[in-house]
């Protein structure tokens, strides 16, 4: 394949790969002809699934909803495009990394505060009728003014028959823990499935590991069996308040979880404040 640095998509020169998810790859890229923003690098996402015109229109509509929420802590999407059958979108590049791989060690309070901001962003999306479908630490981007949530998943608008939010064509057993078991049982994606993912992400921010510890180390088949047969348990080392928030976000019954991501955000903000005050 063409070496990076010479490959261009949609008028952007790809500089290097900075991440790949289950539905596509993200590159650090620069506009071939600098616009009014100068030649600041952007994060350019290229989706794996080839798009038809109709599929592209659905992607544009989803991202347009996201971009219109200007006051929510969501990543800034500059533009969406289609070259051939490849959908690309250019977004603000966040050089400080993500909650999963930050550019510097983050204190616990900062990690928890980042999850609170992601919950606020998720709530804004929900109020606009959008399910994020991809909340996890690698999709929470660190920024000087506070973390932002990456753009919602759009791959489901291109390929029918991928009902399992969070798992794309490269869905892996490691990502299973962010998938609400209710989806595996045939439930619909909605507020509660994003709230589940926020709960698991909060647990990782608090403890450094997920709710199914075996998932990260074991053989993928063993990991999947664990996920399908066990109830997630919050770490025993957590304080009672922290434990309560996590448990209420990942209740096996979606109806017993936080009703809105906003309510969850408020509780996570309280946890962050407590960590900050040293209690």
């Amino acid at each position: 394949m063409t070496p990076l640095g010479t490959e261009a998509v949609g008028g952007y020169l790809l500089l290097r790969e900075i991440g790949h998810g289950v539905h596509g790859r993200v590159y650090l890229a620069r506009a071939e002809s600098p616009g009014e923003d100068g030649d600041a690098p952007v994060a350019l996402k290229l989706l794996d699934a080839p798009a038809t015109e109709q599929g592209f229109q659905r992607v544009v509509e989803e991202l347009r909803r996201c971009a219109s929420l200007v006051s929510a802590p969501l990543v800034t999407i500059h533009e969406v495009g289609l070259e051939g059958a490849t959908v690309f979108y250019a977004m603000r590049h966040h050089p400080l990394g993500s909650l999963a791989s930050p550019s510097r060690q983050l204190p616990r309070q900062e990690r928890v505060a980042a999850v609170a901001r992601a919950a606020r962003a998720a709530h804004a999306l929900h109020e606009a009728g959008v399910v994020h479908r991809g909340i996890k630490p690698s999709n929470i981007l660190m920024a000087a003014g506070g973390a932002v949530l990456a753009e919602p998943t759009t791959a489901h608008t291109l390929a029918p028959g991928q009902p399992l939010t969070g798992l794309g064509t490269r869905g892996s057993a490691r990502d299973l823990e962010f998938v609400d078991p209710a989806l595996v049982r045939g439930g619909e994606p909605g507020r509660s499935t994003d709230i589940w993912a926020l709960g698991v992400t909060l647990h990782i921010a608090l403890t450094g590991f997920g709710l199914y510890p075996a998932l990260t180390s074991a053989d993928p088949m063993v990991a999947a069996r664990m996920y399908l047969r066990s109830r997630p348990e919050a770490d025993a080392q957590l304080g009672p308040a922290q434990r309560q928030v996590v448990t209420a976000a990942v209740d096996p019954d979606p109806g017993s979880r936080y009703l809105t991501a906003e309510a969850l955000a408020a509780d996570i903000e309280r946890l962050a404040a407590e960590i900050g005050s040293g209690s």
């Binding site: 008028g11 347009r64 219109s68 500059h78 929900h126 619909e188």
Partner: peptide, 27 residues
């Protein structure tokens, strides 16, 4: 094809969609 979304250049509002229902799923 490109659709600019940032900088207020996007004048096309997305078709209205209701907030997600609370409690039940259903995007």
């Amino acid at each position: 094809r490109r659709v600019v979304l940032a900088h207020g250049e996007d004048r096309v509002p997305a078709p209205h969609r209701d907030p997600l229902p609370i409690l039940s799923g259903g995007a």
